[in-house]
Amino acid sequence: MHVSEDLKHDPALDAPQTDRPSKVERLEQEGDIAADYLEELLDIADLDGDLDMDVDGDRASVSIVGADLSQLIGAKGEVLDALQELTRLAVYRETGERSRLMLDIGGHRAEQRRRLVALAEKSIEEVRASGESLSLEAMTSFERKVVHDAVAAAGLTSESEGTEPHRHVVILPA
């Protein structure tokens, strides 16, 4: 049997395409862009802070640590949320792709995550003891995500209900 030249298998087609960076490389690039943007912001605001970049699961993560950065956090984290959105926009402007970058300043989000996991664990125990669903207070999308993750890790289910700014988590019994 004769195989024509255009029907022969080309092993080069099996090779992975190397022109597109890997997911980790793309996330690292997001972190670099975000860090550059935030360094400029700190310079403009004349604030001292050190930047730490990481890839946390499926998102880039940038933390600013330093002396007093409370003005970059705000009373309830609203300034931090706004800075995160501005940083995501800076990344989008450079890459053309939507970013899920997480920004933390002065350990605020890390502490918030710890507090939310503790709340979720306490609430999970209440739901298990009562056998009834439990509605939590209104939360931001970040806060709801932390609670949903903690509930899923405990083997229960949860859902978000309501509309912003009153959207909240409901933990369901098993």
Rank of each mutant, 00 (worst) to 15 (best):
D10T: 09
R20H: 13
D14H: 11
T140K: 05
E159F: 09
I73T: 00
E137Y: 08
S130R: 07
R128Q: 10
L86F: 07
E137K: 09
V65Y: 15
E159P: 07
R144D: 00
A67K: 14
L27G: 01
I44T: 14
S99N: 06
V147L: 04
D19W: 14
R100H: 14
E161R: 11
A110F: 07
P11Y: 08
A138G: 07
E5C: 11
A75C: 12
L41N: 03
V146N: 00
L41F: 07
A45I: 09
I124S: 01
I105M: 02
R100V: 10
R100L: 13
D58P: 06
S130Q: 05
D32E: 14
D68L: 06
P21H: 07
H9Y: 15
D14C: 11
D43Y: 10
D54K: 08
L89E: 05
A152S: 12
M139W: 00
F142D: 01
S123L: 01
P16L: 09
I33K: 02
S158N: 06
S63Q: 11
L89F: 09
E40G: 15
H108R: 08
G31N: 02
A60M: 07
K122M: 11
R114K: 15
R98T: 12
G77D: 04
G106C: 05
L89Y: 06
L51H: 04
G96V: 05
Q29G: 12
T87I: 03
L41W: 04
D52N: 15
E78A: 04
D50F: 10
R100S: 14
H2T: 15
M102R: 13
Q17L: 15
A45K: 10
E159M: 10
